[in-house]
Design a protein around this nucleic acid. Structure first.
Lengths: 208, 208
DNA sequence: GTCTATATAGGGATAGAC
DNA sequence: GTCTATCCCTATATAGAC
């Protein structure tokens, strides 16, 4: 039984950061944190394992004890986000994708975005790499958030005008990630969150 | 005088597609079109020159006759977008970034986005690579659109609430690119454009 | 649990024949 | 204007010592 295989294969979602105040203790978590930072700033493809290893203080090969591949690191980070999104997504059910529910969903998503900004930026800036992830591994029951969002926007029971509005509301909520880099960095999170929710409701509030 | 160097260095913006109906005649244009397709679907980093050469029907090295590097291909595509954006950007001046002007700017941008969808998706999905482009080459007078947008959003003369709204409006206008892949593909462009403009004006129209 | 050393492949890029 | 052949480098990943 090679312990390397034993651990590396285990990339399930572990409880995310039991104590956020404490610095990451385990090597595995440190790898994830360093990777998150590098991936979200330089991009996944431009970041090499050598670079991660340098920051880690260990050798490159050490990473392979904790992760079976570079992609597995990305996958672990992706699952983190997925975990946060799952709660928010419970609200929106397949048969009822009303604007009201959508607004509720976005409210929660805005909170998640503001508290886990780096994680969202990672996804925003590395869409190609993330999609590649899904293409290769039809990962059992792990159904992607993006797919479920798209399904909601495809629901023919809802008029197109409304669905476009829903899409716009999503774009508005996430707009901080795309264009504005750190433009609104010094605006307190609560305040920014309020403004974003206002915008979302301006788009979805009165269905007309 | 090596003709290779002579041409490869010339990556200026040439008149984009004089006759859109005709298939691209020059090899250079074919390279750009193939690259645009591959870059925007698979991502810039995941696309190799070998792959482009295959589709082209030529050998890998042939590409180097037309472009000095892989990055130069991306740069040429980036300049295409830049050209389209320049017109729209003439409206928004540095000293006056009012919501009204911003709305006007977005109206034009929505049109550009709908007619040059692939080009926008390329930028949306390869932000990391594009930024790398700017980091290396401080390309003379070529000032990036993104930077100018950010400057407008940083203008302290405008209250934060308004600026966040402007950011949201931008996100709403571009929302089709991010989440929805081809969800609204069968909605006619004019109709979709109208809906998007509606959303933008809902966010910026009545300042409160 | 971490390291060294190494294998292997694929990438971008060059030189020069045709 | 296009192609072949080749170089060189860096990246991921493996084997196995400590």
């Amino acid at each position: 039984m090679d312990p390397v295989i034993d651990r590396a294969v285990t990339i399930g979602v572990e409880p995310v950061d039991p104590d956020p105040a404490a610095a990451p203790s385990t090597t595995r978590d440190r790898i994830l944190d360093i990777s998150l930072e590098l991936f979200s700033t330089q991009g996944y493809d431009k970041t090499s394992l050598r670079q991660i290893a340098e920051r880690l203080g260990y050798s490159k090969a050490a990473i392979y004890y904790h992760f079976a591949s570079k992609e597995d690191i990305l996958m672990a980070l992706h699952l983190r986000l997925h975990e946060f999104g799952r709660d928010a997504l419970r609200a929106v059910e397949d048969d009822d994708s009303s604007p009201a529910l959508w607004a509720e969903l976005l409210d929660q998503l805005i909170d998640q975005m503001l508290t886990h900004r780096a994680l969202f930026i990672l996804h925003e800036r590395n869409q190609a790499a993330i999609e590649e992830l899904h293409r290769e591994r039809s990962d059992a029951d792990h159904e992607d958030l993006q797919i479920r969002f798209r399904r909601a926007l495809s629901n023919d029971a809802v008029p197109v005008e409304t669905r476009v509005r829903m899409s716009c509301a999503f774009g508005a909520a996430m707009s901080g990630l795309v264009l504005a880099g750190d433009v609104f960095a010094d605006v307190p999170s609560e305040e920014l969150g309020r403004m974003l929710r206002d915008a979302v409701h301006a788009l979805l509030g009165e269905p007309r």
